[in-house]
Write a protein that binds this DNA or RNA. Sequence first.
DNA 1: TATAAAACGGGACATTTGTCCTCCTTTTCA
DNA 2: TGAAAAGGAGGACAAATGTCCCGTTTTATA
Lengths: 205, 205
Amino acid sequence: MEQFTASAPESEAVTIKTFAPGARLIHQGDTISYVYIIREGITKCYLEEDNGKDYIFEFLGKGEITGELEGIKKEKCLCNIEAITSVTAYAIPHRLFAWLLVNNTTFNRLLLEELAVRIRQTCIRTSYQQLYPVEYTLLRLLALEAAQDIVIPKKDMAAYLGITIRSFNRTLKELRAKNILDPQGLNIGLSRKQLEEILRRFEEM
Amino acid sequence: MEQFTASAPESEAVTIKTFAPGARLIHQGDTISYVYIIREGITKCYLEEDNGKDYIFEFLGKGEITGELEGIKKEKCLCNIEAITSVTAYAIPHRLFAWLLVNNTTFNRLLLEELAVRIRQTCIRTSYQQLYPVEYTLLRLLALEAAQDIVIPKKDMAAYLGITIRSFNRTLKELRAKNILDPQGLNIGLSRKQLEEILRRFEEM
DNA sequence: TATAAAACGGGACATTTGTCCTCCTTTTCA
DNA sequence: TGAAAAGGAGGACAAATGTCCCGTTTTATA
């Protein structure tokens, strides 16, 4: 972080903020004045619809940025960012963010790439969530969870997959019946190779 | 367009390309060397999954950019861009695109805002597609189509909504039975006010 | 214009997902 | 420690969506 702010106007300092699990970094609809970069912990980025249901777009972890859309265009916050684990984050004042964007080529470049990556990932994910059965998308999520060594509550996983907890549990049970998951837990009871083989099978039919 | 390229190295010229309906501006998986800005016409941006199904993310029209993700990060094309109507587009060579990004603050800014808007819209759309019934999402799509005065083939609308044509037709029939759609066509047989009232009702329950 | 081919719409049934409710476990607090 | 409350799992049924197929309409072509 320091590499970027060294040459910035001194008045606008980057601070570090801490959030307990369940606390919100950003409230949907608010006008905020910081862009955050996660230093430690996991957050969920979700939209609350008028019918009370939530949809989680993504889980943001170390090094990921949030509030940048609102930093680029002065609009109200699109979604909620809530700490799942305990979270610390760099809080970059809007004016500094805008300054960096214009004056620091490296920062500008990093942000562009971050946005590009995010669009790519979102596209890929929404596509397979629409076109493949839940068993497949659930497996991919569990694999991701295991790979990143994080723990996501069941209800959040369901909200991420866009299904109810009932459906989520049902699918877990089916995967257990097929010996793809551990009998009790949420762990994948297969080697990396076996898992890939199973995912591939889904993709082909 | 000319405003940006005036000061650029001469060797890299922007050209205008024409595409007949059904022609592809970009092939998924290819390595391309142009970024396109649509000058006229409508395209669909879609991903073909290994199981043969398509998912359409968005319809791109006048003024919208494509191939920019691949221009920012040197990766293979994420998705297909196919002309629905007859299309003309500015073709910007990659090197010129990269040059503009670094040397033209206005261009850089425009691109950032475009990406930000796109992420916002994608988030909003995926969310309501996951959380509201098909009747609602279909109505929103038809309203969009009418507002922009464009015609999108049924199969493309279904692919955009992530449902089969069978479901699409079924939903149309239901909307007609409720006198929300014209008896034969795809037109919304209601005033703007009435439509908003109906959408609102969906959003509340 | 006649005929074959392709595209379209919708019926019938299968599968998937959601809703509601009940039972059981875990937590909380007096 | 015991009772009440809260949370989680899953059965039973309802609703939504997909698959398969057939009959009709439209398009293409000789």
